[in-house]
């Protein structure tokens, strides 16, 4: 972006007073947007450090007048975060393994192996994209119940392999890998599983990283579905927070915000570190829909 000398507006335009005023106004609007994005996040952080009386005072202060770091200790003992974190991570890791093995292999087969009726099977997967998930949310719930998967992690792991969107992303990525590389491997006598693990998978690490971010975001965020499928002990973090913190009747606001801050920070840090992958993933999601 540094190399481009102009955008829509050129330096010549900026000499006109009207354009200049509008440009300055635009910068102010963007600045206001940045502040209004960051302000609520900062209030969550600072409310978690205030005394409870101060959180409830009107009008509210932005910065705490006295800093109560012990709120975090109280929040930590209020809810068993490591237990629910473990559940969330279990769901994430299992979903990721299933995504790589089931969807990865299927995409590889559809993209790189030749067999009869391939096109038909491809549409068998693709057609599921046209059916909005909310329309079968109830039968889906009853189905898991009929399969006796309720309150087990299999209720997340197995359906993780039924994602046509990820399949589409992976297939189009495999399609883009140079065909001659595969031929070279096969000529050397490599079996298809070896071609997958030693060639296709390593070359596709960027796309799997993008998928990992999607899968992580889902397991970190999703609260409603797990609250239906799972019971108390097996709740992932989001569901536990919703049920025991957000809906709690008797919990001081400052402790509440301290807990919310604790589960808000990890995804923000991960985002700031893996920004590039995430932005690329979004782009893929937007173009291929």
């Amino acid at each position: 972006m540094k190399s481009t000398e102009r955008g829509i507006v050129s330096s010549y335009d900026m000499k006109k007073p009207l354009n200049k005023t509008v440009y300055v106004l635009m910068c102010i609007v963007v600045a206001v947007m940045c502040v209004s994005m960051l302000y609520p996040i900062a209030t969550a952080l600072f409310n978690g450090l205030k005394a409870n009386v101060e959180v409830n005072s009107f009008p509210p202060h932005f910065l705490p007048q006295e800093w109560h770091f012990d709120n975090y200790k109280k929040g930590w003992s209020f809810i068993d975060l490591p237990l629910y974190l473990r559940n969330t991570l279990l769901i994430f890791v299992g979903n990721m393994v299933v995504t790589v093995v089931v969807i990865g292999f299927a995409a590889f087969s559809l993209s790189r192996l030749d067999w009869p009726y391939r096109k038909a099977v491809y549409y068998f997967f693709l057609a599921t994209l046209f059916i909005p998930p909310t329309t079968y949310i109830i039968p889906n719930f009853i189905n898991l119940r009929d399969l006796h998967l309720m309150n087990t992690f299999w209720a997340f792991w197995l359906p993780a392999g039924a994602n046509a969107f990820y399949l589409l992303l992976l297939k189009s990525f495999f399609d883009g890998i140079n065909q001659e590389l595969f031929e070279a491997f096969r000529v050397d006598g490599a079996s298809e599983p070896r071609v997958f693990w030693q060639l296709a998978f390593p070359l596709s690490v960027p796309i799997f990283a993008t998928l990992a971010i999607f899968v992580f975001a889902t397991s970190w965020n999703d609260w409603f579905w797990p609250s239906m499928v799972m019971g108390g002990e097996h709740y992932p973090l989001a569901t536990a927070i919703k049920k025991f913190v957000i809906d709690a009747r008797r919990l001081d606001l400052n402790i509440r915000f301290a807990i919310l801050t604790m589960i808000m920070i990890p995804p923000i840090v991960i985002f700031l570190i893996f920004q590039r992958f995430i932005v690329r993933g979004l782009h893929l999601g937007g173009v291929k829909g």
Binding site: V101, V102, L110, L113, F125, T128, I142, P159, P193
Partner: peptide, 22 residues
């Protein structure tokens, strides 16, 4: 075509069981 089918079969089973069946 063995590997072609073998690779795609688990996904077909899971799509059937967790998407098409519901």
């Amino acid at each position: 075509h063995f590997w072609g089918y073998a690779f795609v079969l688990p996904a077909v089973a899971i799509f059937l069981l967790f998407l098409w069946l519901p």
